[in-house]
């Protein structure tokens, strides 16, 4: 597969992780989540994010609440549940593990 493809595949696999990461200390609404990801060069659209958020909600890692805004309609804000926070820290350590393994591989082949 092409290197571009490789990047895309990697990102896809890590998307859930990225979302959880973005929500780790914040209450964000969907557009903000997407914006944050985009700022970190992870390009996603609502079509991808919504189903993921739904899945995360169903699993209990993420929760949402409607917060009234001064002008116009209330907004749905997402946040991590305690369960989610725990899950995230597990994911972080898993990632760090895999990452260091790969780092070692790259170093050894030089």
């Amino acid at each position: 597969m092409s290197s571009e493809n490789f990047k895309i595949q990697l990102r896809k696999g890590l998307l859930e992780f990225c979302i959880l990461q973005v929500l780790s200390n914040n209450k964000l609404y969907t557009s903000e989540i997407i914006e944050n990801l985009n700022n970190s060069k992870i390009i996603v659209v609502e079509g991808t994010v919504y189903p993921l958020l739904s899945r995360l909600k169903n699993k209990g890692y993420v929760d949402n609440e409607w917060i009234e805004s001064k002008q116009g309609p209330p907004r749905k804000y997402f946040n991590l549940t305690n369960q989610g926070k725990k899950y995230l820290s597990e994911l972080v350590s898993s990632y760090k593990e895999v990452n260091s393994s790969i780092e070692k591989l790259i170093k050894s082949s030089k």
Binding site: Y29, T30, S31, G72, P73
Partner: peptide, 20 residues
């Protein structure tokens, strides 16, 4: 259109909007 679209439009065009 989703909730975010609705909320963002509402915010951004507040100057024009009487009801949305």
């Amino acid at each position: 259109f989703d909730n975010d679209d609705y909320a963002d439009i509402s915010e951004k065009f507040d100057f024009f909007i009487d009801g949305i």
